[in-house]
């Protein structure tokens, strides 16, 4: 019975996709994605579905168990045409590659030029990615293509752009050893001679602790907003689409977050025994006197949340 198989699958965790889903969805999705055009058989298509679904736990939290409807919803949200094309290319299907090149070659080159900021570097970047996508890199004697890692959550073009950006940023950091954000934790940047603190060390300690607690209380979106705006110097217009709001809303959010942060710091200082006036006065301290690693404070990712290993940054490890 289909319901039984779903139940069995649910109890078995995320290791398998229920057969009931496959029997109905597989044919439908197989037809919709034109997988046959690129020589993908039902079996291969089913394997792709299983790998994609289980790798992301159907878009749910790692500890959650996907219901049948959640699995259906998850598969329905995938871009199967792009996914099938990517897998067919990774498998070396000639027709898929011809289609891929005809559709994505020019946009990808333009994107690479835009990312690199130079036509020469951009074309070089695009060519390198093409070589990787084509599977010129081998591991254990097997051709590996990054297209295998595409899971169809976003568009294939967007995935290509993001991959290009990753390659560019990693290359830039490897070769230039320059970071857009100051990273005091790495200890490589020359530290300017610190002036004598104008406030007592105890007061600065209280302030640092209050700031750290206040930042911890912020939501992930608020921390991202502060980092993008104040650390990276991004504009409201750049931040807005990532937060799915208008730039004016970003401005209001920013104003609200900074105001709320200030209030929380004062409250935290008061909780530490300072009067309100003393807490207000403590806010006027020179930030350079504070021993705070704001970047680390702003980071609250769960361990093992992401599987991709970053390219090691030479000289920074």
């Amino acid at each position: 019975m289909p319901s039984q198989s779903v139940e069995v699958s649910a109890t078995a965790g995320i290791s398998a996709v229920p057969d009931a889903i496959h029997s109905r969805l597989l044919d439908e999705l197989w037809r919709e994605s034109c997988a046959a055009t690129y020589g993908l058989e039902h079996v291969q298509f089913r394997e792709i579905l299983e790998r994609v679904g289980t790798a992301q736990n159907f878009g749910l939290a790692p500890e959650a168990t996907a219901s049948r409807q959640q699995q259906v919803n998850y598969f329905r949200g995938l871009r199967f045409a792009d996914l099938v094309l990517a897998r067919a290319c990774a498998n070396g299907h000639q027709g898929a590659w011809e289609h891929f090149l005809s559709v994505y070659r020019q946009p990808l080159t333009r994107a690479a030029i835009a990312i690199a900021g130079s036509e020469t570097l951009g074309r070089e970047l695009a060519d390198q990615l093409y070589a990787e996508l084509y599977g010129l890199t081998t591991r254990d004697g097997v051709r590996r293509s990054p297209l295998d890692s595409y899971r169809g959550k976003g568009s294939l073009m967007g995935w290509l752009r993001t991959t290009l950006a990753q390659r560019h940023v990693d290359h830039h950091r490897r070769t230039r050893r320059e970071l857009p954000l100051d990273n005091p934790a790495d200890g490589n940047e020359p530290q300017a001679a610190a002036p004598e603190p104008q406030k007592p060390a105890s007061e600065l300690l209280h302030l640092s602790k209050a700031i750290e607690e206040a930042l911890h209380q912020l939501a992930a979106e608020e921390r991202f907003l502060l980092a993008a705006y104040y650390f990276d110097g991004r504009t409201l217009l750049e931040i807005a689409p990532l937060l799915r709001v208008h730039e004016a809303t970003v401005s209001r959010k920013l104003h609200r977050v900074t105001g709320e942060l200030k209030k929380r710091i004062v409250r935290n200082l008061q909780a530490q025994g300072l009067s309100k006036a003393a807490a207000q006065e403590a806010l006027g301290a020179d930030p350079r006197d504070l021993d705070l690693n704001l970047k680390k404070i702003l980071q609250f990712s769960l361990p093992d949340a992401f599987t991709e290993k970053a390219v090691p940054i030479r000289g920074m490890q």
């Binding site: 940023v169 990693d170 992930a220 991202f224 980092a227 993008a228 970047k295 609250f300 990712s301």
Partner: peptide, 12 residues
């Protein structure tokens, strides 16, 4: 979002 808040590389 939580990762982006602290990772300049991914923000970039």
């Amino acid at each position: 979002l939580a990762h982006l808040a602290g990772c300049s590389r991914c923000r970039q």
